[in-house]
């Protein structure tokens, strides 16, 4: 597998400029949860077009446009989005309206925008893109499966430039519910990275161009059934074998640590066992914990490979050593494990 990433569009709790200064100044968490850096939508979208769209959809339209601009592509052949929870704000508003008003006086706009595929289809409407369009909604695999689907399309040779996105949003009410079920810092059960959000797009292509930043070399996901033993080591080794890459060729591990020792220890354990020479960088403290946070990790990996440096403050790296291959490893309570392997072009 070797597919080129020819563009990135990023809106996240960190700076939105995706260049050699990315993450030189890291923004800490300002609120109870990580929120996207706001931007002026008027600079990117026609007010008439975006007037009824929710924050999540607007953010994704902008991120998609940024990505296309970065890749010098006007119209992709396909659009695939991964989102764990979809348009939460519209879902909440419609649901609460329905419950409070006894199923009367309900806004069709909110319902219409609550479906998960609204993101990918609004992008298609904006671009007038009639190509393949799909949305994956499988928790922490959502983005990986969107990326995998894109790779399959390229392998099938019917498409050449694919816009792939990973996005989720956090709202006050969602944060409250997450807290109530015991998954935030306020509750003493976990010391966790706070929830976050992001809208990140990539242009995946069969063709190398002057804009090519990195290549995707492998994607793997593994769901552990209840009662099964975790076989992460063999899962990772299998993925490396499929990507035709030796574990010694991995220079960097970008890991989804969430600040919970019980679940984080596997990252260092795997690093010791399989990637002893690699530098480890956790990423969720930069963007928050959410189902499609691995899209942020991929953006980080691409930035590192493109500029051949790790942003200040993220970690140390031997000078003049070339960063050839990066593995992004995330797991959700050891039940869902996922890998993305990225390399230099």
């Amino acid at each position: 597998m070797k597919f080129f990433i020819n563009g990135v569009g990023l809106i996240s709790p960190q700076q939105n400029t995706f260049d050699e200064t990315f993450l030189n100044n890291i923004s800490g968490i300002e609120n109870k949860y990580y929120q996207n850096k706001e931007l002026n939508y008027k600079d990117y979208l026609d007010p008439l077009v975006y007037r009824r769209l929710s924050r999540l959809i607007k953010t994704n339209l902008v991120s998609a446009k940024m990505c296309l601009k970065d890749s010098l592509i006007n119209n992709p052949d396909a659009i695939i989005v991964g989102t764990g929870l979809g348009c939460i704000e519209d879902t909440e508003n419609f649901l609460i309206g329905m419950l409070e008003n006894n199923e009367a006086l309900l806004s069709p706009t909110q319902f219409m925008q609550s479906t998960h595929n609204t993101i990918s289809s609004q992008i298609a409407i904006l671009l007038k893109c009639h190509g393949y369009n799909n949305t994956f909604t499988h928790r922490s695999f959502s983005f990986e499966h969107a990326l995998l689907d894109g790779c399959l399309l390229l392998k099938e040779n019917r498409h050449f430039n694919i816009l792939i996105g990973g996005t989720d949003e956090i709202t006050e009410k969602l944060y409250t519910i997450i807290g109530n079920i015991g998954l935030t810092k306020n509750n003493n059960r976990y010391k966790q990275i706070a929830p976050g959000e992001g809208s990140i797009f990539f242009l995946l292509s069969n063709n190398q161009s002057i804009k090519s930043n990195a290549v995707v070399r492998g994607i793997s996901t593994y769901h552990k059934l209840k009662g099964d033993n975790l076989i992460v080591e063999s899962f990772i080794l299998e993925a490396l074998e499929q990507a035709k890459i030796n574990n010694s060729e991995i220079d960097l591990m970008i890991c989804g640590n969430t600040g919970t020792p019980r679940f984080d220890k596997i990252y260092s354990s795997i690093a010791d066992k399989i990637f002893p020479g690699a530098t480890i960088i956790p990423y969720k403290y930069l963007c928050g914990d959410y189902f499609t946070a691995s899209a942020f990790a991929l953006a980080l990996a691409i930035n590192i490979i493109k500029y051949q440096r790790i942003p200040d403050g993220l970690g140390s790296f031997a000078n003049n050593k070339i960063i050839n291959n990066i593995i992004i490893y995330n797991h959700d309570k050891e039940i869902d494990s996922s890998l993305i392997i990225v390399g230099k072009c």
Binding site: L48, R52, L105, L106, S107, P108, T109
Partner: peptide, 17 residues
């Protein structure tokens, strides 16, 4: 103004509310 079908529904909602 060039409003569309969803605007029509929202306007009907305003009339009701």
């Amino acid at each position: 103004l060039g409003l569309d079908s969803i605007d029509a529904l929202e306007l009907m909602l305003i009339l009701e509310k």
